[in-house]
């Protein structure tokens, strides 16, 4: 259930408005506890405003989530007793930076982008998911910072005489993030290769 917002292909510094899907790989041991496969899959919004012919100020937001069910055995018991609780982890990343590209022709270009990244994480722990008000609910938040750099390719198709273009892009890069302490519960550092595919409007 995606709401697509057209990316504007700014061959000559157009404004942009995109929606994308992002996958960020990570081998972070902290995140490995909270996510099933260690990756961070997010959806995001991005906007851009041309500063120059070849330079666009971009900013965006990505949101990802993961859940996990924990089971532990109490070794002190004769037969071991299983206790369990669930976690839900929500990662919001706010990015701001610059994007620069060079056109191959009027409808395609390669680009690169470097953006500052602020991560806001929420981890919720619940030992009784059936009860919304049990005392075993813990919520922790934390903020971290980093940088992402990526290179991509985008193409734009004019939408008639509206002045809008529908753009499609894909980019691949790397996100560096400092360790983020999410309260006392988690310490994550979701560094890794990140890729995005998206579409949007250029205008």
């Amino acid at each position: 259930m995606l709401s697509l917002i057209l990316i504007g292909a700014a061959l000559a510094g157009d404004r942009e408005l995109d929606v994308h899907l992002s996958v960020q790989g990570s081998d972070d041991p902290g995140w490995n506890y909270l996510s099933e496969d260690g990756h961070l899959t997010s959806i995001g919004l991005r906007g851009g405003y041309p500063l120059h012919k070849h330079l666009v100020l971009v900013g965006g937001w990505e949101h990802g989530a993961a859940g996990m069910e924990f089971n532990s055995y109490d070794d002190s018991g004769d037969d071991g007793s299983e206790t369990s609780f669930q976690t839900g982890s929500y990662i919001n990343q706010f990015q701001l930076g610059l994007k620069s590209g060079f056109g191959v022709n009027n409808w395609a270009k390669f680009y690169g982008t470097v953006q500052g990244d602020m991560l806001y994480g929420i981890v919720r722990v619940d030992d009784d998911p059936d009860d919304d008000e049990n005392p075993g609910q813990v919520e922790a938040t934390g903020v971290g910072f980093g940088v992402l750099a990526a290179a991509g390719f985008e193409t734009a198709v004019p939408l008639g005489k509206s002045g809008l273009s529908l753009a499609f892009y894909g980019e691949l890069g790397y996100t560096w993030l400092a360790p983020t302490h999410i309260g006392e519960v988690a310490t994550i550092q979701i560094d890794g290769v990140s890729g995005r595919v998206g579409t949007g409007l250029r205008f």
């Binding site: 496969d37 949101h63 924990f70 089971n71 055995y73 070794d75 929500y90 619940d126 609910q137």
Partner: peptide
């Protein structure tokens, strides 16, 4: 769906995998 569920019930946690760990 979580993007919408955040605004509804924050304790409706997303599903996921299973972890077996030492006693907490």
């Amino acid at each position: 769906l979580s993007i919408f569920l955040i605004g509804c019930d924050p304790w409706n946690l997303p599903g996921g995998g299973n972890q077996f760990i030492e006693s907490t």
